[in-house]
Amino acid sequence: MSVRVTIVEGSVGGAGGMAPLGGMVPAVRSHADSPDVGVDRRAGVGAVLVFEGIVRGLEAGELIAGLEYEVYEPMATRQMEMIARGLVEELGLVSVRVWHSRGRVGGGECSLRVVVRSAHRKEGLVAMERFIDALKRDVPIWKRVVGRG
């Protein structure tokens, strides 16, 4: 069972990302392309869930350049680790891995990526929803629109 949280400057890459960050997080096209999604047979993984939050290029019908994320980093990291660890323990997950952006992320780019690995899909799906709900309620990260119109 493991938990890992990483805050990265700019886009975290991912399937929606148009500008992956220096190759730190490879764009996901298939499991074969993505070492962090790859499964160790001995870990008993039967489900891998990947969530990617993408910055919408439209805000209230208006084109935007992107979002600027402000992160209270020590607390945000600690909160995400605590939330993920709680879910790992409660639901018996194999692992939770999280990347979140700070700074500017363009429209269409990925700002959040969560990978949950579990023995069965059910607990993975529950964990994913609960993690993201908790993130949006209890993790000190703020965003503001940049470049309207």
Binding site: Y72, A76, H100, I132
Partner: peptide, 24 residues
């Protein structure tokens, strides 16, 4: 860590006001 109302504070603590968050 989110604090509860009756926790004692010291001058060396790192205190932050956490408004409505909007991560993700």
């Amino acid at each position: 860590v989110f604090a509860v109302a009756d926790e004692v504070v010291s001058a060396t603590d790192e205190i932050a006001l956490i408004g409505l968050v909007s991560g993700g």
